[in-house]
Simulated assay, not measured.
Amino acid sequence: MKLELPCSECLYPGGKPNKQKPPMTEGWGLIPNVPLGNDCIYTVEGPCGHTSMVKIHNFKFEMLFESGIRAMHDGYYREAITSFYVALERFYEFSLGVLAMPKLWDEKEEELDEKSLRDFAKGLDILKSSEKRVGAFHGMYYAVNGVFTKAFPESQISVRNKAIHQGEIKTHAETLAFGTGVHDYIKVLLREYKENFPLGIHRMKYVEEGLAWIKLGGQLKGKMNSLPSTLIYTFINSNDGRYFESSETIEHYMQNPTMGRAVRQETI
């Protein structure tokens, strides 16, 4: 999956908005064909000759699900099912962080120090196996809400297992049904988190960005907060309130030429 990211040096020369040209129109200020990476901070070099850093404001599970849509769009159905399910597994991790956040991060504290951030990530990383991760998610959900949430259907897990472990190639219709099932499951819970745990969602983005910045050798209280941030146009988009009201289908979305493009550039 390739992204189209903005060049912050073109859009914000010297840290100030460029008033001479309209931002991100007709390809100006955009760097095409940037490979999807593991972290949310990218160092990019554009045809303009600039080298700049930019944060992607989307969550990892959103980008992985988008990768599944791209694979399905291009006819790679087995790879699409893999990406859809991996997106769900990353969503379980995200959910654990959101639900546990009040216990792990004092509401009065604006930021975590590097040790606390690493310990937080280590706690999530312990859950390596899929079964442990799912079990921890359901246990945490019950501990926080006092009720169990619906499990992802076993019939859908069987589709994933046959595609990944047995190499079974699914049809377009089967892949679309699987992706839709994963999306619908995520959307119900994501809407619930947005309503009940908005601070947890905000802080999980800080965790993703902080860990990526530390990996690059940066200091949490240094340049990270001033890095330009961009929002990628994705099917699942927790940053866009319109997503929760939309009834758009994956099939319809695949006809949209703006898939994977930067739709907002800002300095935070």
Rank of each mutant, 00 (worst) to 15 (best):
F59E: 14
N18H: 03
P22S: 05
G49Q: 11
Y85E: 04
M63D: 11
V54D: 15
G123R: 12
M72V: 04
N33L: 07
L127T: 06
L88R: 08
R90I: 00
P13G: 02
E114F: 05
S83V: 01
E9M: 09
G15W: 04
M72Q: 09
I69V: 14
E114Y: 06
K128S: 10
Y85C: 03
S83K: 01
F120C: 12
V134E: 15
Q20W: 02
T25L: 12
G14L: 00
P23Y: 01
S129Y: 05
E89V: 01
D119F: 09
E9N: 12
Y12N: 10
A121I: 08
P102S: 03
W28S: 09
D125A: 15
P13I: 00
R70C: 00
G46I: 03
F65T: 06
F65K: 01
M24G: 02
K16Q: 12
D113W: 04
P102R: 02
K60T: 07
Y76T: 01
H57A: 13
M72L: 11
V134H: 12
I69Q: 06
Q20V: 03
H50M: 08
L11P: 11
E93Q: 06
C48W: 11
F59Y: 10
K132N: 10
K128V: 07
G14H: 05
P13D: 01
W105D: 14
P22Y: 03
E66I: 04
K60I: 06
Y92G: 01
F61W: 09
D119S: 14
H57W: 08
G97E: 06
Y85D: 05
L11W: 01
L127C: 12
L96N: 09
E62L: 11
E9C: 10
I56P: 15
F61A: 10
F84Y: 03
C40T: 14
I41P: 15
F59A: 13
Y42N: 12
L127Y: 13
K60L: 11
R118H: 07
P22A: 08
L127S: 11
A121M: 13
M72G: 09
E62D: 08
P32S: 09
V34F: 11
L127K: 11
V44A: 14
E107W: 03
Y77D: 04
N18L: 10
G46A: 08
Y76A: 12
W105P: 08
K108A: 15
M101R: 02
Y42W: 08
L104F: 01
V134Q: 15
P32A: 08
R90H: 05
F137R: 13
E89Y: 00
V44T: 15
E107P: 07
T82I: 01
L30W: 03
F61Y: 13
E45K: 15
D119V: 07
D106Q: 07
F65E: 05
R70H: 01
N33I: 04
I31E: 13
H73L: 02
S130E: 14
E107N: 09
M63L: 15
G68P: 01
L104H: 00
N33K: 10
Y12G: 06
E93N: 03
Y76P: 06
F137L: 14
C48G: 14
S129P: 04
W28L: 09
F59P: 02
L36P: 02
Y76S: 08
S116D: 14
P47H: 03
L88F: 00
N58Q: 08
K21H: 01
C40A: 14
V98I: 09
K60Q: 10
